[in-house]
């Protein structure tokens, strides 16, 4: 009530207050307008013939008909889904499990030590992470292959196998993100009242039962928020896959983002690349809205996250 009153008193819609405040928010608005909103109409290129020479003519859905006939497009598209699946089966749950286990550690300095190590990789660039793992897994003298050879095995060229590359990506992605991503769950866990656990213990519930009936339900809101938010960026796989891939694993590492980069920016085929991009962002949008809807259904109070 009081707030409203002050707002009115200081001169309504365009009082001095508002002008100074508007000036403060203006730089951010201008930057977003230029770099985020200005490219939006550019998706129309998907319906035109448009190459390095610029706009030629409108062609309707021809670009889409063209890309749907490309084998590489479907390969990139299916690979994208494979990486999405790997994310939700392994990468996403890994940090939740880690947080739950970590929450059981009661020795503080030890906790600090583990956390210091496990969050560090998050801050390294993918270029460095890619470099580290290439050396580590190098077939000639990488650490892992030295272990394999010491155990009497044959060295494995990890980065040259199309079948295992997606799993390799998963391992590296977990290595990079698991510690940092678990922090948000740890924060949520610390918010669960101790009295709940005490009451459960009095009722004779063991650790496992407590985890199942107190910890997991307590984490549910956080998990849902992270779940919905993750869909917004789940198809953005450019940087990790670009730095980890090489000619030998092109088949399994090619996703829409890397394919668009190759055909669009490298080869200048703007029209069909924009069509692919539009296809991708439409799926992204549907995923976010669908997951938002789903999470609305899953929470008792029916609150949506967006």
């Amino acid at each position: 009530m009081e707030r409203k009153l002050i707002g009115k008193k200081k001169g309504g819609r365009l009082g001095t207050t508002n002008i100074v405040l508007t000036l403060m928010v203006l730089p951010a608005v201008i930057l977003l307008t230029i770099f985020h909103y200005l490219p939006l109409p550019g998706v129309a290129i998907a319906f035109a013939k448009y190459n390095i020479g610029g706009f030629q003519e409108w062609v309707g859905f021809e670009n889409f008909q063209y890309i749907f006939k490309l084998n590489n497009f479907w390969r990139a598209f299916l690979n994208n889904w494979m990486y999405v699946a790997l994310n939700y089966v392994f990468i996403f749950p890994s940090s939740i499990i880690l947080a739950i286990l970590f929450n059981e550690v009661r020795i503080r300095p030890y906790k600090k030590f583990v956390q210091t190590i496990s969050t560090l990789p998050h801050f390294l660039s993918w270029a460095v992470v890619g470099g580290i793992w290439m050396l580590l897994l190098s077939p000639s003298n990488g650490y892992i292959n030295q272990i394999i050879e010491a155990l009497g095995g044959e060295p494995i060229y990890f980065f040259a196998n199309n079948t295992t590359f997606p799993l390799l990506y998963t391992v590296i992605a977990i290595w990079k993100s698991v510690g940092y991503n678990s922090i948000i769950y740890l924060a949520a866990l610390s918010g669960i009242g101790l009295e709940l656990y005490e009451a459960a213990a009095i009722d004779g519930a063991g650790r496992w039962k407590q985890t199942l009936h107190i910890t997991l339900p307590g984490l549910k809101p956080t998990i849902l928020v992270m779940f919905v938010l993750s869909f917004a960026s789940i198809l953005n796989l450019f940087e990790p896959l670009y730095v980890l891939s090489n000619a030998m694993v092109r088949e399994s590492s090619m996703v829409l983002d890397t394919y668009i980069f190759q055909s669009g920016i490298m080869q200048g085929r703007y029209d069909i690349s924009t069509a692919m991009g539009l296809f991708k962002s439409t799926i992204s949008l549907v995923l976010v809205l669908a997951s938002n809807f789903l999470s609305k259904r899953l929470t008792e109070d029916g609150q949506s996250i967006l």
Binding site: I34, L38, P39, G42, V43, G264, Y270, G277
Partner: peptide, 17 residues
Amino acid sequence: VIIPMLFSGGQIPTFLV
């Protein structure tokens, strides 16, 4: 916050801008 999260021009339109 919300609209930039949901909609983006994509790689090529951004590149052209």
